[in-house]
Design a protein around this nucleic acid. Structure first.
Lengths: 225, 225
DNA sequence: ACCTGAACACCGTTCAAGT
DNA sequence: ACCTGAACACCGTTCAAGT
Protein backbone atom coordinates (compact mmCIF):
# COMPACT_ATOMS: atom_id res chain seq x y z
CA UNK A 1 0.00 0.00 0.00
CA UNK A 2 0.89 3.67 -0.17
CA UNK A 3 3.82 4.82 -2.25
CA UNK A 4 6.63 3.03 -0.46
CA UNK A 5 7.82 -0.52 -0.87
CA UNK A 6 10.14 -0.30 2.08
CA UNK A 7 11.63 -3.76 2.41
CA UNK A 8 13.13 -4.09 -1.05
CA UNK A 9 14.20 -0.50 -1.35
CA UNK A 10 16.04 -0.27 1.92
CA UNK A 11 17.59 -3.66 1.35
CA UNK A 12 19.06 -2.58 -1.94
CA UNK A 13 19.98 0.86 -0.72
CA UNK A 14 21.88 -0.61 2.18
CA UNK A 15 23.78 -3.08 0.09
CA UNK A 16 24.77 -0.36 -2.33
CA UNK A 17 26.54 1.83 0.19
CA UNK A 18 30.09 0.75 -0.59
CA UNK A 19 32.43 0.64 2.37
CA UNK A 20 29.56 0.31 4.82
CA UNK A 21 28.28 -3.14 4.01
CA UNK A 22 27.00 -3.69 7.52
CA UNK A 23 25.14 -0.44 7.88
CA UNK A 24 21.84 -0.88 9.63
CA UNK A 25 19.16 -2.65 7.69
CA UNK A 26 16.75 -2.97 10.55
CA UNK A 27 16.37 -0.43 13.26
CA UNK A 28 14.01 0.52 15.99
CA UNK A 29 11.99 2.94 13.89
CA UNK A 30 11.83 0.82 10.76
CA UNK A 31 10.55 -2.17 12.70
CA UNK A 32 7.95 -0.18 14.62
CA UNK A 33 6.67 1.42 11.41
CA UNK A 34 6.39 -1.90 9.66
CA UNK A 35 4.52 -3.30 12.65
CA UNK A 36 2.15 -0.37 12.70
CA UNK A 37 1.48 -0.81 9.01
CA UNK A 38 0.65 -4.46 9.60
CA UNK A 39 -1.69 -3.51 12.42
CA UNK A 40 -3.43 -0.86 10.37
CA UNK A 41 -3.92 -3.13 7.41
CA UNK A 42 -4.95 -6.38 9.03
CA UNK A 43 -5.71 -5.70 12.66
CA UNK A 44 -4.16 -7.42 15.61
CA UNK A 45 -4.55 -10.86 14.05
CA UNK A 46 -2.22 -9.85 11.22
CA UNK A 47 0.43 -8.62 13.57
CA UNK A 48 2.62 -11.68 14.01
CA UNK A 49 6.36 -11.77 14.29
CA UNK A 50 6.46 -13.94 11.17
CA UNK A 51 4.40 -11.48 9.16
CA UNK A 52 6.52 -8.63 10.43
CA UNK A 53 9.70 -10.46 9.48
CA UNK A 54 8.31 -11.21 6.04
CA UNK A 55 7.39 -7.58 5.47
CA UNK A 56 11.00 -6.69 6.28
CA UNK A 57 12.43 -9.50 4.14
CA UNK A 58 14.10 -11.12 7.06
CA UNK A 59 13.65 -14.29 9.09
CA UNK A 60 11.53 -14.19 12.24
CA UNK A 61 14.45 -14.95 14.50
CA UNK A 62 16.40 -12.00 13.08
CA UNK A 63 13.94 -9.64 14.75
CA UNK A 64 15.15 -10.77 18.13
CA UNK A 65 18.51 -9.15 17.49
CA UNK A 66 16.70 -5.84 17.72
CA UNK A 67 13.80 -6.31 20.06
CA UNK A 68 13.52 -8.46 23.15
CA UNK A 69 9.91 -9.46 22.78
CA UNK A 70 6.69 -8.68 21.03
CA UNK A 71 5.65 -6.86 24.20
CA UNK A 72 8.62 -4.50 23.92
CA UNK A 73 7.72 -3.90 20.30
CA UNK A 74 4.28 -2.84 21.49
CA UNK A 75 5.92 -0.15 23.60
CA UNK A 76 7.80 1.19 20.61
CA UNK A 77 4.52 1.35 18.79
CA UNK A 78 2.91 3.17 21.69
CA UNK A 79 5.65 5.76 21.42
CA UNK A 80 5.13 6.09 17.67
CA UNK A 81 1.37 6.39 17.94
CA UNK A 82 1.39 8.86 20.78
CA UNK A 83 3.47 11.15 18.57
CA UNK A 84 0.31 11.69 16.56
CA UNK A 85 -1.57 13.21 19.48
CA UNK A 86 -1.42 16.97 19.51
CA UNK A 87 -1.17 18.35 23.03
CA UNK A 88 0.48 21.62 22.03
CA UNK A 89 -2.91 23.30 22.08
CA UNK A 90 -2.85 23.61 25.85
CA UNK A 91 -0.23 26.34 25.50
CA UNK A 92 -2.42 28.51 23.32
CA UNK A 93 -6.10 27.80 23.81
CA UNK A 94 -8.41 28.14 26.82
CA UNK A 95 -8.78 24.85 28.67
CA UNK A 96 -12.18 23.82 27.36
CA UNK A 97 -11.18 24.41 23.73
CA UNK A 98 -7.78 22.80 24.21
CA UNK A 99 -9.37 19.70 25.73
CA UNK A 100 -11.77 19.54 22.84
CA UNK A 101 -9.01 19.67 20.22
CA UNK A 102 -6.66 17.36 22.07
CA UNK A 103 -9.33 14.72 22.67
CA UNK A 104 -10.21 14.65 18.99
CA UNK A 105 -6.68 14.03 17.76
CA UNK A 106 -6.23 11.48 20.53
CA UNK A 107 -9.36 9.59 19.55
CA UNK A 108 -8.65 9.76 15.84
CA UNK A 109 -5.14 8.43 16.28
CA UNK A 110 -6.36 5.45 18.27
CA UNK A 111 -9.37 4.78 16.12
CA UNK A 112 -6.83 4.21 13.34
CA UNK A 113 -4.97 1.77 15.53
CA UNK A 114 -7.77 0.17 17.50
CA UNK A 115 -5.99 -3.10 18.17
CA UNK A 116 -3.57 -1.11 20.31
CA UNK A 117 -6.20 0.25 22.65
CA UNK A 118 -6.63 -2.63 25.07
CA UNK A 119 -2.88 -2.95 25.21
CA UNK A 120 -1.90 0.68 25.54
CA UNK A 121 -4.72 1.60 27.90
CA UNK A 122 -3.10 -0.68 30.41
CA UNK A 123 0.55 -0.15 29.51
CA UNK A 124 2.66 1.59 32.17
CA UNK A 125 3.52 5.02 31.03
CA UNK A 126 7.00 5.11 32.49
CA UNK A 127 8.71 3.93 29.34
CA UNK A 128 6.91 6.31 27.03
CA UNK A 129 8.38 9.81 27.29
CA UNK A 130 5.93 11.17 24.76
CA UNK A 131 2.98 9.99 26.77
CA UNK A 132 4.42 11.55 29.89
CA UNK A 133 5.01 14.83 28.07
CA UNK A 134 1.43 14.80 26.98
CA UNK A 135 0.23 14.36 30.54
CA UNK A 136 2.47 17.24 31.59
CA UNK A 137 0.89 19.56 29.05
CA UNK A 138 -2.66 18.52 29.86
CA UNK A 139 -2.03 18.85 33.60
CA UNK A 140 -0.53 22.29 32.96
CA UNK A 141 -3.69 23.34 31.21
CA UNK A 142 -5.82 22.34 34.18
CA UNK A 143 -3.48 24.05 36.65
CA UNK A 144 -3.50 27.33 34.74
CA UNK A 145 -7.29 27.20 34.57
CA UNK A 146 -7.31 27.06 38.36
CA UNK A 147 -8.68 23.54 38.55
CA UNK A 148 -8.68 21.84 41.94
CA UNK A 149 -5.29 20.15 42.15
CA UNK A 150 -6.56 16.80 43.47
CA UNK A 151 -9.22 16.61 40.76
CA UNK A 152 -6.82 16.91 37.83
CA UNK A 153 -5.68 13.30 37.54
CA UNK A 154 -9.22 11.92 37.83
CA UNK A 155 -10.33 14.40 35.19
CA UNK A 156 -7.57 13.31 32.82
CA UNK A 157 -8.25 9.64 33.46
CA UNK A 158 -11.98 10.14 32.90
CA UNK A 159 -11.31 11.90 29.60
CA UNK A 160 -8.87 9.22 28.52
CA UNK A 161 -11.34 6.48 29.41
CA UNK A 162 -13.95 8.17 27.28
CA UNK A 163 -11.46 8.62 24.46
CA UNK A 164 -10.28 5.01 24.48
CA UNK A 165 -13.82 3.73 24.73
CA UNK A 166 -14.86 5.93 21.83
CA UNK A 167 -11.91 4.88 19.72
CA UNK A 168 -12.91 1.28 20.34
CA UNK A 169 -16.45 2.10 19.37
CA UNK A 170 -15.33 3.82 16.20
CA UNK A 171 -14.05 0.48 14.93
CA UNK A 172 -17.25 -1.41 15.64
CA UNK A 173 -19.20 -2.62 12.60
CA UNK A 174 -21.68 -0.03 11.40
CA UNK A 175 -24.59 -2.38 11.89
CA UNK A 176 -23.57 -3.28 15.43
CA UNK A 177 -26.98 -2.22 16.71
CA UNK A 178 -29.01 -4.14 14.20
CA UNK A 179 -31.55 -6.07 16.32
CA UNK A 180 -31.53 -8.95 13.83
CA UNK A 181 -34.19 -11.53 14.61
CA UNK A 182 -35.48 -9.34 17.43
CA UNK A 183 -36.53 -6.56 15.09
CA UNK A 184 -39.96 -5.28 16.05
CA UNK A 185 -39.71 -6.30 19.68
CA UNK A 186 -37.82 -3.27 20.95
CA UNK A 187 -40.04 -0.26 20.26
CA UNK A 188 -38.19 2.38 22.27
CA UNK A 189 -34.72 1.38 21.12
CA UNK A 190 -35.68 0.88 17.50
CA UNK A 191 -37.42 4.25 17.45
CA UNK A 192 -34.30 5.95 18.77
CA UNK A 193 -32.18 4.05 16.28
CA UNK A 194 -34.37 5.16 13.42
CA UNK A 195 -34.35 8.80 14.53
CA UNK A 196 -30.59 8.73 14.75
CA UNK A 197 -30.26 7.14 11.31
CA UNK A 198 -32.50 9.82 9.88
CA UNK A 199 -29.99 12.50 10.83
CA UNK A 200 -27.62 10.93 8.31
CA UNK A 201 -24.73 11.33 10.72
CA UNK A 202 -22.22 8.63 11.55
CA UNK A 203 -23.39 7.23 14.85
CA UNK A 204 -19.94 6.78 16.37
CA UNK A 205 -18.86 10.31 15.49
CA UNK A 206 -22.07 11.83 16.79
CA UNK A 207 -21.70 9.93 20.03
CA UNK A 208 -18.12 11.01 20.43
CA UNK A 209 -18.81 14.69 19.89
CA UNK A 210 -21.92 14.72 22.06
CA UNK A 211 -20.18 12.85 24.83
CA UNK A 212 -17.02 14.89 24.62
CA UNK A 213 -18.89 18.18 24.95
CA UNK A 214 -20.88 16.75 27.83
CA UNK A 215 -17.94 15.42 29.79
CA UNK A 216 -15.80 18.53 29.29
CA UNK A 217 -18.63 20.80 30.33
CA UNK A 218 -19.37 18.61 33.33
CA UNK A 219 -15.77 18.38 34.44
CA UNK A 220 -15.10 22.09 34.14
CA UNK A 221 -18.33 23.19 35.81
CA UNK A 222 -18.21 20.91 38.86
CA UNK A 223 -14.54 20.89 39.80
CA UNK A 224 -13.16 24.22 38.59
CA UNK A 225 -12.05 26.97 40.90
CA UNK B 1 -11.93 -21.44 43.82
CA UNK B 2 -15.33 -20.84 45.43
CA UNK B 3 -17.28 -23.73 46.87
CA UNK B 4 -17.88 -25.73 43.73
CA UNK B 5 -15.65 -28.28 42.09
CA UNK B 6 -17.88 -28.50 39.09
CA UNK B 7 -16.19 -30.94 36.73
CA UNK B 8 -15.93 -33.92 39.09
CA UNK B 9 -19.26 -33.42 40.74
CA UNK B 10 -21.28 -33.16 37.57
CA UNK B 11 -19.34 -36.03 36.10
CA UNK B 12 -20.24 -38.30 38.94
CA UNK B 13 -23.78 -37.03 39.19
CA UNK B 14 -24.34 -37.68 35.53
CA UNK B 15 -22.97 -41.19 35.63
CA UNK B 16 -25.12 -42.05 38.62
CA UNK B 17 -28.42 -41.31 36.91
CA UNK B 18 -29.32 -44.89 36.06
CA UNK B 19 -31.07 -45.34 32.75
CA UNK B 20 -29.70 -42.07 31.41
CA UNK B 21 -26.03 -42.88 31.10
CA UNK B 22 -25.54 -40.40 28.27
CA UNK B 23 -27.21 -37.45 29.92
CA UNK B 24 -25.43 -34.18 29.29
CA UNK B 25 -22.06 -33.75 30.88
CA UNK B 26 -21.15 -30.56 29.10
CA UNK B 27 -23.63 -27.95 28.17
CA UNK B 28 -23.79 -24.40 26.98
CA UNK B 29 -24.00 -22.86 30.43
CA UNK B 30 -21.41 -25.08 32.08
CA UNK B 31 -18.85 -24.33 29.38
CA UNK B 32 -19.49 -20.60 29.44
CA UNK B 33 -19.15 -20.48 33.22
CA UNK B 34 -15.91 -22.44 33.18
CA UNK B 35 -14.58 -20.08 30.51
CA UNK B 36 -15.56 -17.04 32.51
CA UNK B 37 -13.84 -18.45 35.58
CA UNK B 38 -10.68 -18.97 33.57
CA UNK B 39 -10.87 -15.43 32.26
CA UNK B 40 -11.41 -13.97 35.72
CA UNK B 41 -8.55 -15.91 37.25
CA UNK B 42 -5.89 -15.62 34.62
CA UNK B 43 -6.93 -13.02 32.12
CA UNK B 44 -7.25 -13.50 28.41
CA UNK B 45 -3.92 -15.30 28.18
CA UNK B 46 -5.28 -18.09 30.41
CA UNK B 47 -8.35 -18.54 28.29
CA UNK B 48 -7.31 -21.27 25.88
CA UNK B 49 -9.39 -24.11 24.60
CA UNK B 50 -6.92 -26.54 26.16
CA UNK B 51 -7.15 -24.92 29.57
CA UNK B 52 -10.92 -24.81 29.30
CA UNK B 53 -11.02 -28.50 28.37
CA UNK B 54 -8.73 -29.35 31.27
CA UNK B 55 -10.92 -27.46 33.73
CA UNK B 56 -13.84 -29.54 32.49
CA UNK B 57 -11.87 -32.81 32.57
CA UNK B 58 -12.32 -33.35 28.90
CA UNK B 59 -10.13 -33.32 25.82
CA UNK B 60 -9.85 -30.10 23.80
CA UNK B 61 -11.49 -31.62 20.76
CA UNK B 62 -14.51 -32.64 22.84
CA UNK B 63 -15.43 -28.98 23.21
CA UNK B 64 -16.13 -28.76 19.51
CA UNK B 65 -19.09 -31.04 19.93
CA UNK B 66 -20.75 -28.20 21.80
CA UNK B 67 -19.38 -25.00 20.40
CA UNK B 68 -18.38 -24.17 16.87
CA UNK B 69 -15.47 -21.90 17.66
CA UNK B 70 -13.81 -19.90 20.36
CA UNK B 71 -15.50 -16.85 18.86
CA UNK B 72 -18.95 -18.38 19.42
CA UNK B 73 -17.94 -19.18 22.96
CA UNK B 74 -17.18 -15.48 23.40
CA UNK B 75 -20.77 -14.68 22.48
CA UNK B 76 -22.07 -17.05 25.13
CA UNK B 77 -19.86 -15.30 27.62
CA UNK B 78 -21.15 -11.92 26.51
CA UNK B 79 -24.64 -13.13 27.25
CA UNK B 80 -23.60 -14.42 30.67
CA UNK B 81 -21.78 -11.23 31.61
CA UNK B 82 -24.50 -8.89 30.43
CA UNK B 83 -26.86 -10.68 32.82
CA UNK B 84 -24.93 -8.97 35.62
CA UNK B 85 -25.85 -5.49 34.44
CA UNK B 86 -28.87 -4.09 36.22
CA UNK B 87 -31.02 -2.02 33.91
CA UNK B 88 -34.24 -2.49 35.88
CA UNK B 89 -33.65 0.86 37.57
CA UNK B 90 -34.94 2.76 34.56
CA UNK B 91 -38.44 1.65 35.48
CA UNK B 92 -38.31 3.15 38.95
CA UNK B 93 -35.77 5.98 39.18
CA UNK B 94 -35.55 9.35 37.47
CA UNK B 95 -33.29 9.24 34.42
CA UNK B 96 -30.21 10.84 35.96
CA UNK B 97 -30.25 8.52 38.96
CA UNK B 98 -31.06 5.47 36.86
CA UNK B 99 -28.17 6.21 34.51
CA UNK B 100 -25.87 6.60 37.48
CA UNK B 101 -26.84 3.23 38.99
CA UNK B 102 -26.89 1.40 35.69
CA UNK B 103 -23.49 2.71 34.63
CA UNK B 104 -21.92 1.57 37.88
CA UNK B 105 -23.12 -2.03 37.65
CA UNK B 106 -22.15 -2.04 33.98
CA UNK B 107 -18.66 -0.84 34.72
CA UNK B 108 -18.16 -3.15 37.70
CA UNK B 109 -19.25 -6.18 35.74
CA UNK B 110 -16.78 -5.44 32.97
CA UNK B 111 -13.96 -4.41 35.26
CA UNK B 112 -14.20 -7.97 36.59
CA UNK B 113 -13.96 -9.32 33.08
CA UNK B 114 -11.67 -6.80 31.43
CA UNK B 115 -10.31 -9.16 28.80
CA UNK B 116 -13.78 -9.22 27.34
CA UNK B 117 -13.99 -5.49 26.76
CA UNK B 118 -12.16 -5.14 23.45
CA UNK B 119 -14.08 -8.12 22.18
CA UNK B 120 -17.54 -7.27 23.40
CA UNK B 121 -17.31 -3.57 22.65
CA UNK B 122 -17.13 -4.51 19.01
CA UNK B 123 -19.38 -7.58 19.02
CA UNK B 124 -22.64 -7.24 17.11
CA UNK B 125 -25.50 -7.09 19.49
CA UNK B 126 -27.95 -9.05 17.39
CA UNK B 127 -27.12 -12.40 18.95
CA UNK B 128 -27.34 -11.18 22.53
CA UNK B 129 -30.96 -10.79 23.61
CA UNK B 130 -29.96 -9.59 27.03
CA UNK B 131 -27.90 -6.77 25.58
CA UNK B 132 -30.79 -5.76 23.37
CA UNK B 133 -33.18 -5.79 26.31
CA UNK B 134 -30.82 -3.54 28.18
CA UNK B 135 -30.79 -1.05 25.31
CA UNK B 136 -34.56 -1.13 25.26
CA UNK B 137 -34.78 -0.22 28.92
CA UNK B 138 -32.18 2.52 28.70
CA UNK B 139 -33.80 3.98 25.60
CA UNK B 140 -37.16 3.87 27.39
CA UNK B 141 -35.69 5.90 30.23
CA UNK B 142 -34.53 8.60 27.83
CA UNK B 143 -37.83 8.66 25.99
CA UNK B 144 -39.87 9.07 29.17
CA UNK B 145 -37.56 11.87 30.28
CA UNK B 146 -38.46 13.68 27.07
CA UNK B 147 -35.00 13.44 25.56
CA UNK B 148 -34.60 14.42 21.93
CA UNK B 149 -35.28 11.21 20.00
CA UNK B 150 -32.34 11.50 17.63
CA UNK B 151 -29.92 12.16 20.49
CA UNK B 152 -30.72 9.00 22.43
CA UNK B 153 -28.50 6.54 20.60
CA UNK B 154 -25.48 8.87 20.62
CA UNK B 155 -26.05 9.44 24.34
CA UNK B 156 -26.14 5.69 25.03
CA UNK B 157 -23.07 5.07 22.91
CA UNK B 158 -21.19 7.91 24.61
CA UNK B 159 -22.04 6.50 28.02
CA UNK B 160 -21.05 3.02 26.96
CA UNK B 161 -17.76 4.26 25.55
CA UNK B 162 -17.01 5.93 28.85
CA UNK B 163 -18.02 2.79 30.75
CA UNK B 164 -15.88 0.47 28.66
CA UNK B 165 -12.92 2.80 28.79
CA UNK B 166 -13.28 3.10 32.55
CA UNK B 167 -13.57 -0.65 33.00
CA UNK B 168 -10.38 -1.01 30.99
CA UNK B 169 -8.73 1.61 33.14
CA UNK B 170 -9.85 -0.12 36.33
CA UNK B 171 -7.63 -3.06 35.41
CA UNK B 172 -4.55 -0.98 34.77
CA UNK B 173 -1.68 -1.44 37.22
CA UNK B 174 -1.96 0.94 40.15
CA UNK B 175 1.40 2.50 39.39
CA UNK B 176 0.55 3.05 35.74
CA UNK B 177 1.31 6.76 36.09
CA UNK B 178 4.65 6.35 37.82
CA UNK B 179 6.99 8.58 35.80
CA UNK B 180 9.91 6.21 36.50
CA UNK B 181 13.20 7.63 35.27
CA UNK B 182 11.48 10.87 34.35
CA UNK B 183 10.54 11.67 37.94
CA UNK B 184 11.25 15.30 38.69
CA UNK B 185 10.91 16.45 35.10
CA UNK B 186 7.15 16.83 35.01
CA UNK B 187 6.25 19.42 37.66
CA UNK B 188 2.61 20.00 36.77
CA UNK B 189 1.73 16.37 36.30
CA UNK B 190 3.63 15.14 39.34
CA UNK B 191 2.03 17.81 41.49
CA UNK B 192 -1.42 16.73 40.38
CA UNK B 193 -0.50 13.09 40.92
CA UNK B 194 0.68 13.85 44.45
CA UNK B 195 -2.46 15.82 45.30
CA UNK B 196 -4.62 12.97 44.06
CA UNK B 197 -2.64 10.39 46.06
CA UNK B 198 -3.07 12.53 49.16
CA UNK B 199 -6.83 12.10 48.96
CA UNK B 200 -6.29 8.41 49.67
CA UNK B 201 -8.86 7.49 47.07
CA UNK B 202 -8.42 4.86 44.38
CA UNK B 203 -7.57 6.83 41.28
CA UNK B 204 -9.58 4.70 38.87
CA UNK B 205 -12.71 4.83 41.01
CA UNK B 206 -12.42 8.58 41.55
CA UNK B 207 -12.01 9.11 37.84
CA UNK B 208 -15.00 6.96 37.04
CA UNK B 209 -17.32 8.69 39.48
CA UNK B 210 -16.16 12.17 38.53
CA UNK B 211 -16.44 11.43 34.86
CA UNK B 212 -19.77 9.70 35.18
CA UNK B 213 -21.36 12.62 37.00
CA UNK B 214 -19.88 14.99 34.45
CA UNK B 215 -21.05 13.13 31.38
CA UNK B 216 -24.55 12.47 32.74
CA UNK B 217 -24.97 16.10 33.75
CA UNK B 218 -23.66 17.23 30.40
CA UNK B 219 -25.84 14.89 28.37
CA UNK B 220 -29.02 15.72 30.25
CA UNK B 221 -28.49 19.47 30.26
CA UNK B 222 -27.62 19.95 26.60
CA UNK B 223 -29.95 17.56 24.82
CA UNK B 224 -32.99 17.24 27.07
CA UNK B 225 -36.40 18.50 26.13
C1' DA C 1 27.12 -7.49 14.64
C1' DC C 2 23.54 -9.57 12.48
C1' DC C 3 21.53 -13.28 9.94
C1' DT C 4 19.54 -18.21 9.07
C1' DG C 5 17.30 -22.59 10.05
C1' DA C 6 16.04 -25.97 13.22
C1' DA C 7 13.83 -26.62 17.27
C1' DC C 8 10.58 -26.03 21.43
C1' DA C 9 6.37 -25.55 23.67
C1' DC C 10 2.54 -23.84 22.62
C1' DC C 11 -2.15 -22.26 19.88
C1' DG C 12 -7.25 -23.30 17.59
C1' DT C 13 -9.36 -26.60 14.91
C1' DT C 14 -10.38 -30.99 12.18
C1' DC C 15 -11.21 -35.63 11.73
C1' DA C 16 -11.06 -40.60 11.84
C1' DA C 17 -11.87 -43.88 15.18
C1' DG C 18 -13.96 -45.54 19.07
C1' DT C 19 -18.22 -46.31 22.68
C1' DA D 1 -24.45 -38.50 20.78
C1' DC D 2 -20.26 -37.54 22.59
C1' DC D 3 -15.53 -38.68 23.49
C1' DT D 4 -10.31 -39.49 22.42
C1' DG D 5 -5.88 -39.00 20.12
C1' DA D 6 -3.39 -37.88 16.19
C1' DA D 7 -2.73 -34.46 13.07
C1' DC D 8 -2.45 -29.71 10.74
C1' DA D 9 -1.06 -25.17 10.22
C1' DC D 10 0.02 -21.95 12.93
C1' DC D 11 2.12 -18.96 17.22
C1' DG D 12 6.42 -16.46 19.99
C1' DT D 13 10.91 -17.40 21.23
C1' DT D 14 15.66 -19.64 21.70
C1' DC D 15 19.87 -21.04 20.10
C1' DA D 16 23.68 -23.08 17.60
C1' DA D 17 25.78 -22.16 13.45
C1' DG D 18 27.22 -19.37 9.96
C1' DT D 19 29.20 -14.63 7.70
Amino acid sequence: MREHTLPDESDTANRRRAGRPRSVILDHELIARAALKLLAEGGYAAFTMSALARSLSVSPSALYNHVNSKQELMQWIQELVMAGVDSSVFATLPLNEALFEWAQTYRDVFAEHAPLIPLIAVLPVSESPRTLEMYEEVAGGFVRAGHDQAAIVPAIVALESFIFGSALDATAPLDIFDPGQYTGKLPQFEGALEAQRATGKNSADAAFLTGLRAIIAGLLSTAAG
